[in-house]
Simulated scan of single mutants.
Amino acid sequence: MNKLFIIKIGGNVIDNSDALRSFLGDFATVDGRKILVHGGGKIATRIGEQLGIESKYVDGRRITDDQTIDLVTMVYGGLVNKKIVAQLQALKCNALGICGADGNLVPAEKRPVKEIDWGWVGDVKSNQLPSDRWQVLLDNGFVPVLAPLTHDSNAHIMNTNADTMASAIAVALSTAYDVRLIYCFEKKGVLESVEDDNSVIRTINKESYAQLKAEQKLFAGILPKLDNAFAAIDAGVKEVLIGHADDLLQNTTPSTTGTLISA
């Protein structure tokens, strides 16, 4: 079975042009089939301020009203995505910039209004991802670069969590490829102490994850990544790794660093 790397890059790297350039240089040299899923970083917030569009958040997550969905569509699907594609093409990596709406590659639905109205935020329909369409791209030499946008089948674009998209794609393709899902960000892995960059927890399984959460040892911002990682493992993904963007090349080998997630 062919190896497939699904690599998600976090916003803090995207916000730093030097860090992003270095990461993309490494990504371009990864052999074989690969998909890059990217977030938006703080670029949308900065451009929104220039346009007089106020960013609103609840628990660190963006409320996406009518103005904001136009903003993030322009920034995530346009500015960020196409700059990444152009840099990869300059590195002889045959990148293809897309979002979840293109080819209906990531079906989604609008998040229902409960305690909070998130606006135009999409939740991935994980069981409906068309793995055959992804295989056509991968098996014909393209490197998909996916922006965190989907659609609701009623002509509305939706802002969608990039970590969740990466996990759902990994699950959908796990029957066709030997998938390693890698979450890259600015830390060396999951830290036991957020103040100590060297306190990396090398392996986490379900039992140890429950204990770490009960003891409140984990930084709240890492919990969604871990939840997505375990959801992917439960659904058949072979390997999930959380590590530093600078360690990407090592994390595509058997001798990984960072935090390896297992059942």
Rank of each mutant, 00 (worst) to 15 (best):
K188S: 08
G189D: 03
L24M: 03
T257W: 05
G100F: 04
A162W: 03
V121A: 08
A147K: 13
Q135D: 12
A108G: 07
I182N: 01
V30Y: 02
I98D: 01
Q250I: 04
I201S: 01
A229N: 00
D66W: 15
G60F: 04
Q87W: 10
R111V: 10
S153A: 15
L51C: 05
G141Y: 14
K34P: 09
N251D: 06
A108S: 11
V124E: 00
A263S: 13
Y57E: 07
T259Y: 03
D102H: 10
M165G: 09
G25A: 05
A155D: 14
N94K: 08
D163Q: 02
S193G: 04
S174A: 07
I116H: 06
D59T: 07
N94M: 11
V124G: 04
Q87P: 07
A155V: 10
Y57S: 02
V72Y: 11
R62P: 14
L129P: 03
D15H: 02
Y57M: 11
V106R: 04
G41Y: 01
D123P: 06
C93A: 11
Q89Y: 01
D132S: 15
I35T: 02
T203I: 11
S55D: 11
K238T: 10
R21C: 11
F185M: 02
R21P: 02
Y177P: 12
G11E: 04
A263M: 08
D234W: 00
Y76T: 11
L149V: 10
V171L: 03
A168R: 12
V72S: 10
G78E: 04
I84T: 14
V179Y: 03
D59R: 14
M158T: 12
Q89F: 05
S174V: 03
G48E: 05
A210Y: 07
E239N: 04
V58F: 11
K114H: 12
V143F: 10
V85I: 07
D197T: 02
I7E: 02
D163E: 09
Q211Y: 06
E195N: 09
S17C: 04
A170K: 00
T257R: 03
D26N: 11
A176V: 10
L51K: 07
T257L: 09
V194M: 08
S255D: 12
W134I: 12
I6Q: 00
Q89H: 05
K82M: 07
V240M: 00
A101T: 10
Q250R: 10
D196Q: 03
G122F: 05
N2L: 13
L71V: 12
N154V: 13
I98C: 07
L137G: 10
N205V: 07
T150I: 08
N154R: 13
R46N: 13
T73H: 12
L36E: 06
H156K: 15
F142I: 12
I43P: 09
T45F: 02
G100L: 05
E215R: 08
N94E: 09
E49P: 02
L226W: 01
A263P: 14
A245K: 01
T252L: 11
I182V: 08
I7M: 05
D102K: 06
D70L: 14
V58N: 11
D247P: 04
L218P: 00
N94R: 06
N2D: 15
L248Y: 00
